[in-house]
Simulated assay, not measured.
Amino acid sequence: MEEVELCFPQLNTSCWKTKRPLSHTVLIYMVLSFISLLTVTLNLLVIISISHFKQLHTPTNLLLLALAVSDFFVGFDMLFQIMLINGCWLLGDLLCTLYLVYDYIFPSTSIGIMVLISIDRYVAICDPLHYSTKVTQGRVQVCVSLCWIISLLYVCIVFKDDMKPPGRYISCVGECGGTLSIFHQFSDFIILFLIPISVIIVLYMRVFVVAVSQARAMRSHIAAVSLERSVKVTVKKSEIKAAGTLGVVIVVFLICICPYFCVTVKGRDTYVSTSSASFVLCLYDSNSCLNPLIYALFYPWFRKCIRLIFTLQILRPGSCETHML
């Protein structure tokens, strides 16, 4: 008869450990640890770059900075996800509740800031003449602050029952889970998934249409003034690149968050309790690792910032005045 492994062998009320081959466990730990380290590192580079260099202090980059801050903390959150892979929580009920709140607030804030970024790009492309008056650093700071406040208030509402007292819904010692009512599961799907996704897709499709129209108009102008064929090809490639970038933004975001909300909308009673749920949450959080790659890595100034940081030139006096654009 196979022996049952418990999180706390000395307790009859202990949860069971998830049993898997040692090689699989080591591989999972290594992959998740690497993703966590990469998430923290990339977002820290974005934070340092935008905060240090004055030329990067623009409304758009302020949104990237806010996104990097929330994604930076998501990277640390994944360390706790690693602990839950085997189905055991060893840090007690209070820290479990704090972890659930932590795990909820930063990803939801990242989603809100991504919506703000899509709005910023929509105004920049579709209404460029009024962009400087409509999108200012002051307004961006207010919007980002509201995003954080709304996320915090929403999390407090969702987990108000789990906080009094912590662990009241735990079925066995070593479990870390809370409960989401049907109403909260539905509101999660609407507020954190359906509405942001709809806004992002609609705005990006509008940006794409306008960008393609402008590129075609430019190509027509080039043809009218009889420039070389090679210039026409370059314009056409820019259209393809724009389409690919927008497609990556939407598809990667959907791939990362769809599994979590598919689980939520099916009516799971436990927020985090099994290794499969932990995997879904890790995939959900991994979007924070990809955000700096998608939103910042393709900017030339970011690559230049990385070079200055790793060569320690950022420590030189007056380095904040370096020309980055």
Rank of each mutant, 00 (worst) to 15 (best):
Y299M: 15
V173Q: 15
A224V: 06
S151M: 14
S108W: 10
V144I: 08
I149S: 04
M114W: 09
E5W: 08
L180V: 12
C262N: 13
Q55W: 01
I113P: 12
L65H: 10
I50Y: 01
R316N: 03
L290N: 08
C176N: 15
E175V: 11
T25W: 12
Y29R: 14
H184G: 02
Y204F: 05
F72W: 03
S36P: 09
M324K: 10
L84I: 08
G247E: 11
L203A: 14
L315I: 01
E239C: 05
Q10C: 01
A296G: 08
D103K: 14
D127H: 10
S145Q: 06
P9D: 12
H130E: 12
T133M: 11
C256I: 04
I250S: 07
N61F: 00
T245C: 14
S132C: 12
C147G: 07
V251L: 14
F72R: 00
V252K: 03
T97C: 14
F53Q: 04
P166W: 01
V207T: 06
V231W: 11
R316P: 01
S49H: 11
M163G: 02
A66N: 02
I309P: 05
E5N: 08
T13A: 07
P9V: 04
T322N: 04
S33V: 10
L308P: 03
T179I: 13
V263R: 08
I82Y: 00
S181A: 09
Y295R: 04
L254A: 02
Q313I: 00
V251G: 09
G318L: 06
S213F: 04
I85M: 06
S220F: 08
V4W: 09
L308A: 06
K266D: 03
T311S: 10
S70V: 07
V173H: 11
K160Y: 07
